[in-house]
Design a protein around this nucleic acid. Structure first.
Lengths: 197, 197
DNA sequence: TATTTTTAATTGACTGATCAATCAACAAAA
DNA sequence: TTTTGTTGATTGATCAGTCAATTAAAAATA
């Protein structure tokens, strides 16, 4: 049933299948055959469109990053004050879409694989830089430059840390409590700023 | 050269080789043959002493945990005040021994593998619980129960997060700055306590 | 319009490499 | 001679990646 114009559909299906397979398995050690099977095609077709497995993984990572980026832009556009911008960045990261068991596991697996794969490493750096700059866009007006930098670094670390812990014990920090924990930090720091000007 | 009493020596050499191999490679995807080679023995001997590969990995994880535990106990015993206990727990985690590139990568790899291996998952939970209780031993006298719990959770998340970030960008949070970041959080929170009693 | 030709989609079967795990055999100490 | 330490060789399974062959749509040609 070769209908033309299948390529974009297949690519998407394969990337989606990659996310869900890695998410369920909790590791990047998944076979191309299983991914392809879930996408309803043969492994040969996956190689036909993506070449080596590594490229399929990179494309998947890019998709994850793009999803997160889109949500972040949309959330930021809805915030009026700097403080709201900070909250927006935090909440996006613990959003329903991103904070699902599946996605968390996939992220973790990619984090580890990035140690070995320069392309994946580069992609993760993009994420880290973007998170940092999004946070700074809200923090800069609220604190001195070095203090804002420090806070951005701490917030980013807390977000990543809550992810990793979420993956470990299954579920302790639910989205709401994770957000609350980070917000609590921001509040404490900003109150400290106000008290010692 | 079969001298008797080799077993404990070989076991230790194999575990050490496992840590360094995983650390350098940045993944648990290392062959038994390579580990054994580094330990100066054949892969058959590794299987002879540890059985399946999985068991060698578990033994390695236990070793990592034991090292961290020993350091924690020793650091806690040297602290007089509750505030010092908190600092001790934080600094142990960013200590030279634990925070080396090698060890960081190994930890990360184990975190991911724990998604698939119930025994590894259990071991990591032991670590998480111990970290939490160590932190609480210092925080409990300094804040209300729920506030102390919140701080312990946040500190633990920051520690894990700084680990993961350390692995990603090569080197940004050095031990000193990582410690400073977490201490800054603790100070901010405690000052907030003092200001609104 | 009817035909031939080209192109896109798709897969089953295969290859080659990699590894975990086993085992029979041997060496030396007790 | 029994026990402990040790390995080379082998097996069996798993996979990534390739390739030739097949189908049908689309384009070109008659």
């Amino acid at each position: 049933m070769p209908k033309i114009g299948m390529e974009p559909l297949r690519r998407k299906a394969l990337i989606d299948a990659t996310i869900s397979t890695i998410g369920e398995r909790g590791t990047l050690n998944v076979t191309v055959a299983e991914i392809a099977g879930r996408a309803g095609v043969s492994s040969a077709l996956a190689h036909h469109y993506f070449g080596p497995k590594e490229e399929l993984l990179q494309a998947t990572m890019r998709q994850l990053l793009a999803d997160l980026g889109r949500d972040a832009v949309s959330a930021l556009s809805r915030s009026a004050t700097p403080r709201e911008r900070v909250s927006a960045v935090i909440s996006v990261n613990f959003n329903a879409g991103q904070f699902r068991e599946e996605t968390v596991h996939a992220w973790l697996a990619f984090y580890v694989e990035a140690q070995n794969s320069p392309p994946l490493r580069r992609l993760l750096r993009v994420y880290a830089r973007r998170l940092h700059s999004n946070l700074m866009s809200g923090l800069a007006p609220l604190a001195s430059r070095p203090e804002a930098e420090r806070m951005a670094e701490a917030i980013a670390a807390m977000i990543d840390g809550l992810y990793i812990r979420r993956a470990l014990r299954d579920g302790l920090p639910n989205p709401a409590s994770a957000t609350a924990l980070v917000e609590d930090y921001v509040d404490a720091k900003l109150r400290q700023q106000a008290n010692t000007p």
